[in-house]
Computed example of a mutant assay.
Amino acid sequence: MTSPADLAASLGRRRAYWHAGVLLTVLLGALYVVRRHWPTVESGAGRLAGADQGWLLVGATAALGTWAASALAQQGAVIRRLPGRLLLAAQFAACAANHLLPAGLGAGAVNVRFLMRCGLPAGRSASALAVKATAGATVRLALIAALAPACPGLLRPPRLSPAAFAVVLGGLVLVAALPATPWWARCRRALTAVLADLRALHGCPARSAALWGGSLAFAALHSLVLIAVTQAVGLPLPPLQVALLYLAASSAAALLPTPGGLGSLDAALALALTVAGAPGAAAASAVLGYRLLTVWLPLLPGLLVLGLLVRRKAV
């Protein structure tokens, strides 16, 4: 008969093996991503070698601030007070995990696990992420609406061909037919839960200020990263236009489920900068610099932090 001490030791070994396996998987994933995109990393480093180091430092500082802004917005999405240091570490780790899985699944999984470890039920944790995402999307649209009049003609609505118009019309008809389906009923319940959480959060001024302030700071700091890189490489576009182009391109890229917007955001940013009048080489260098500061340089440290959080059972 197995004694309680032997059973506890066996469970402890299993947990240790599981934690080691997760950590190894995380490290292998990091090495795979870096190796797969190594030409991009190497080319970006070469193009940025002659850039203004002062502006690159400004961009790196703004990139560091994005994780603090994300942590502030996540705290604002829940009433319960979260442990500050672990929350910041979780956002750093979630940002890295987001570049391994499509459509934000990596970041979502890390944040849900973190919130559940903090004592929130699974449903409330998922709702908190939806609240944060809703606030972020609303802030981006508001910033685009505020900046567009200051940059007339920079953003042009796409011209729809008859075929594209038919596809859009068909999509609207399909959405109109969804209310009778169980899928739509589940979506409606989820939306109702998110709206209820938003109302509850706005009953607490400190939480609502953190939610909207963090979301605003997150979008503004990402815009500042791109502005700093464009200044570093001498791209001839005013900072206000660069910010508007970033907000529009990142909002469009969010519709494509690629890991961390890899490929979709790069293409959207490069196209937006080029159409706005930037030389192709300078636009490519700016996009590579933005990616280096926000993805490639923090990727391996972020995954290491994720492994440590898993080992400490914080996620």
Results as ranks from 00 to 15, higher is better:
F114A: 09
G260H: 00
L27I: 12
L292D: 02
L293P: 10
L129R: 01
A281M: 09
L273R: 03
R186T: 10
L48M: 15
L240Y: 03
L57F: 07
A103Y: 13
G104K: 02
G46L: 12
L216A: 12
A217Y: 10
A164P: 03
R188N: 15
T274K: 02
A177K: 03
K132L: 09
L174W: 02
C95K: 07
A77V: 02
G307L: 06
A145Q: 11
A96E: 05
T61M: 15
V233N: 14
G12E: 04
G171A: 07
S3Y: 04
A137R: 07
G59I: 10
V310K: 11
A8V: 13
K132I: 04
A77H: 01
A51I: 01
S10D: 05
L244S: 03
A248L: 13
A90D: 05
A133H: 00
A16K: 05
R312I: 11
M116V: 11
L255V: 13
H202Y: 08
G123D: 04
R189K: 13
A249H: 03
A278L: 14
A209R: 14
W67I: 04
G153Q: 11
Q241E: 15
V233C: 15
P298I: 07
V26T: 04
V305R: 07
L174S: 03
A270L: 14
